[in-house]
Simulated scan of single mutants.
Amino acid sequence: MLVSESTPDGFSFMTGSSLLGQLSSMRKLHELTIIAPFVLPLPRSKDNIRTIKKILRIDKKGIVDGVVYYRPWFFGFPLILGRLNDFIKVLAIFVCIKVNKIKFDIIHAHYAHPPGFVAVLLGKIVKKPVIITCRGSDIHEYTEKNYPDKLRRSRVLYSIKNAVYLICVSNFLKRKVISLGIDDAKVTVIPNGVKSRMFYPIDSSVARKQINLPIDKKLLVNVALLTPIKGTKYLIDAFAELTKRRNDVLLLIIGDGPLRAELENQVLALNLDGHVRFLGFIPNEELVFWFNAADLFVLPSLGEGFGIVLIEAMSCGIPIVASNVGGIPEIINEDNLGVLTTPGDIKGLSSCILQALNKTWDRNRLIERSKYYSWDNVARLTSDIYERI
């Protein structure tokens, strides 16, 4: 049984979750059930009431690609009482299991918190082993001693110490987990995967025509949440430096987040409004055109547990410029795949982008390397862990 924030029809209660891509591969090896509990806001305002009505119209049970999923819901507590919501999620899942007579042998949660914490508590109640996949910020951000949410930090630590096994998506995260006092014997590395039928090479001119992009420009593409850790402000500053040396470049920023307005103002202040476009959220099924239209994919993160978007870009044959941080150098581990730069180094990032634009890349090598990260391979490695428990 998988405890998640997302369901296989693509509905997510946090951000879009790439982990669901493995389900079609996993179901060939095991019977799967997903339970994704979610919290309804209390009906204290018109906006909350509209949100409640919208969520209640969503199916609470379904089958996608042969995988059954459930979405038990409950009214959550606001503000400081919201700390109780994790425990109510446990109750919601427990009731869902009993009412629907769900049978399972293992609980597998993706992310140490909230799903991992909820899964560990549930596992103690139903006496089933719990595996947690640590995917990024849940480890490299939430476990830092200076992380402001001390309760979340304590729940992450509780989760990883009480799970019977941990899967990390990169060696960087594994080292971090072990540094927190976890026995090396109960931690393994299994990378994220990519849907090859969703991300594949297309002729650049065809892709650009499909999404109305100019043929005569060098296109840089960035796909990320617009949050501080993604380093987008450094990319914009580096791009401003780049335009002093080339006037044929266009930066496309795909994604949304709390920093969007601030970043848009930064672009205006640098007089880059004709050279930088904010495209907001773009569905996965359309991203293939944007990747293939690009000359470079740029990821200037200050921290990154893995970086699945790098594999998506490589699957399309697009070279990378990215920060030498976290799990990124495990992916960009040879000069034929991309160029790494120091995180937060504006001039260094600009120089690396210029270097990459002037280089001739072997697109076939990028595509070949991306094949290691297939969901079939991820499913096989994960199944091996299940069999050991």
Rank of each mutant, 00 (worst) to 15 (best):
I320M: 12
V90I: 07
K98G: 05
F199V: 08
W290I: 02
E334K: 08
K359I: 11
L213T: 06
P129H: 14
N247D: 14
C168L: 00
K161T: 10
S351W: 11
Y165F: 15
P78G: 02
Y70T: 13
I253V: 10
W361Q: 15
G307N: 07
N100F: 09
R57F: 03
I93A: 10
D345T: 01
Y200T: 13
L81K: 09
R208F: 05
T341N: 07
L381P: 00
Y372F: 15
N284Q: 15
K174E: 01
E387W: 10
V169M: 02
F117L: 10
L91Y: 04
S351H: 06
I97T: 02
L56A: 11
Q22P: 09
Y70G: 06
L251P: 00
L235V: 05
L252S: 06
I93E: 09
D203C: 02
D149I: 09
D59F: 03
L84V: 01
L302H: 12
I125G: 00
I215D: 13
L250W: 04
D184N: 15
T360C: 10
P214E: 13
Y200K: 06
V164Y: 05
T382M: 07
K195Y: 12
S301D: 02
V90E: 14
L225K: 03
V3Y: 14
A240T: 04
T342C: 01
N265L: 12
S24T: 11
D335F: 03
R153C: 00
K217N: 00
K60C: 14
M1Q: 15
N271G: 08
C168R: 06
A261T: 08
E312M: 00
L259V: 04
V223G: 01
L166D: 00
R363N: 13
N48G: 05
H30L: 10
Y373N: 10
N292D: 13
N162C: 11
L122K: 03
S323I: 06
G307Q: 06
R208K: 13
L337A: 14
D295N: 14
I80H: 04
Q266D: 14
A119I: 04
I139K: 00
I389D: 08
P72A: 05
I93G: 04
V339D: 10
P214M: 05
I107G: 03
L166E: 01
I55Y: 15
R175P: 04
F104Y: 12
S17T: 00
